[in-house]
Amino acid sequence: MSAAKQKAQQIIDNNAVVVFSKSYCPYCHASKTLLNELKAKYYLLELDEVDDGAAIQDALEEITGQRSVPNIFIDHKHIGGNSDLQARRGQLNKLLSAAGAL
């Protein structure tokens, strides 16, 4: 397993909610805004602000089959991207509570 894949998997395993993001991405911004409105506790990694961001993005594609950001995990499960998160808006309080992130 590559170092980047190990790092990505550790972040997913050690945090109830994770958003792999890019600081300039409007879809990422929409996801972070929604989670912030719900007062969710989440781990944020801006892939464009870390040295190994490209390698982590490659690793996330291996893990999830999704290359785009945001790449979101709740309760260690892959949720998908912003449209997937927004589509679950009605269930988010329940999902986040179950994950211990509210």
Rank of each mutant, 00 (worst) to 15 (best):
V19T: 09
Y24T: 03
Y24A: 02
Y24W: 15
C25Q: 08
P26G: 12
Y27V: 00
C28Y: 04
H29D: 13
H29P: 07
A30P: 10
A30F: 01
S31P: 03
S31C: 07
K32F: 04
T33D: 08
T33M: 08
L34A: 14
L34T: 03
L35N: 05
E37S: 07
L38G: 03
K39T: 13
A40C: 12
Y42N: 12
Y43A: 12
L45I: 09
E46W: 08
E46A: 12
E46V: 00
L47W: 09
L47R: 13
V50R: 02
V50H: 07
V50D: 02
D52W: 03
A54E: 12
A54F: 13
A55R: 10
Q57R: 08
A59H: 08
L60W: 11
E61G: 10
I63Y: 09
I63K: 09
N71H: 08
I72L: 04
I72Q: 01
H76T: 12
H76W: 09
G81F: 00
G81W: 01
S83D: 03
D84V: 08
L85N: 00
L85F: 00
Q86T: 10
Q91E: 15
N93M: 12
L96T: 15
L96A: 08
L96Q: 15
A98I: 11
A99H: 14
A99F: 03
